[in-house]
């Protein structure tokens, strides 16, 4: 079931197209990562989704409701963590959570423990004394109020320490298991790669590519590089690797260098299992490599060879 459907969506600010003819759909229970350089239009797209901005043209369906973000009943199903989340400085964390729980029409008592869930043990401290990371954790607690079916996070790990990032990733995985649909926009691509099912790359207001990480990797043709240091250099291993699917393999002294597509890596590693090795190093392309490849291509060509 499609939870979010976006059809030919555009948003103009005068002559500037912040979002340009975006079409996208996100399934229920899917974790979708929205990535792109600064000013790509990610935040504008998210703001239209949650009803903070109106599109110039195009349609959005949220849980089957057209322009659902504008309607109170649909917004009840959405949890949103904005970029640079801010709160009322003179309220404490507990008061903040109580205020938003009441706005959502859910009992505060049920969610009182949410502050601990997100690792915030400063419930009675005024928000103005909070660090950026603490504000971010409070933002997560507020977004999770009312057990929303859709969660929209704009730069959710900004300000979190590595432990907080790990906890956040674990939380996303748990939410996914519960069938929650998550839209995640982030600059920190390594974190996105860890948790998402599919990724949409935005540039200049357009979605220039979307798919799973593996699909994107295959499309851009980035290769894995395996460097194995052999105990006994043997030329026949090169032949074995080429037969196993390596695109390139050569021996440089005792070091065997192999280039292969990500899909063939398992076969090649299986082939290396019978070879006595001193050392093994595997370099897989990251989402960052994929992203940069797409963006560079866009800059160089103006168009793209990819769908």
């Amino acid at each position: 079931m499609k939870m979010i459907e976006i059809e030919s969506l555009s948003k103009d600010y005068g002559p500037i197209k912040a979002v340009d003819d975006v079409t996208l759909s996100i399934e229920e229970g899917e974790v979708f990562g929205l990535i792109g350089p600064n000013g790509a239009g990610k935040t504008t797209l998210i703001k239209i989704l949650v009803g903070l901005s109106r599109q110039t043209s195009g349609r959005i369906f949220i849980d089957g409701v057209r322009d659902g973000g504008r309607f109170k009943d649909v917004r009840r199903k959405i949890g949103y963590l904005p970029e640079n989340v801010a709160f009322y400085e003179n309220l404490t964390a507990s008061e903040t959570l109580r205020f938003f729980a009441r706005l959502k029409g859910v009992p505060f008592e049920k969610y009182r423990g949410m502050l601990e869930t997100v690792g915030l043990d400063a419930g009675e401290k005024k928000v103005k004394k909070f660090s950026k990371g603490m504000r971010q954790r409070l933002g997560l607690a507020v977004a999770l109020l009312g057990d929303p079916r859709i969660l929209i996070f704009d730069e959710p790990t900004s300000g979190l320490d590595p432990r907080g990032v790990r906890e956040f990733q674990r939380m996303i995985k748990n939410l996914k298991e519960e069938g929650v649909t998550v839209v995640l926009s982030s600059h920190i691509l390594g974190e996105v790669q860890e948790v998402v099912d599919r990724i949409g790359i935005m540039n200049n207001g357009r979605i220039i590519a979307s798919g799973s990480f593996r699909e994107l990797l295959e499309t851009v043709g980035l290769r894995c590089i395996i460097t194995a240091t052999l105990s006994i250099p043997d030329e026949s291993v090169v032949e074995e690797m080429l037969n196993a699917g390596a695109e390139e393999a050569f021996l440089d002294g005792a070091r065997l260098k192999i280039t292969c597509a990500n899909r063939d890596m398992a076969k090649i590693l299986a082939g290396l299992a019978g070879v006595k090795l001193k050392d093994l190093e595997i370099k897989e392309p990251s989402l960052e490599d994929v992203f940069l490849k797409y963006i560079e291509e866009k800059r160089e060509g103006g168009g793209s060879q990819w769908p």
């Binding site: 703001k47 109170k72 009943d73 640079n84 938003f100």
Partner: peptide, 14 residues
């Protein structure tokens, strides 16, 4: 300007 309005308006309120 403070950044609280976006969060407030994303809740089920008119």
């Amino acid at each position: 300007e403070m950044g609280t309005l976006g969060l407030l308006l994303s809740f089920p309120v008119t």
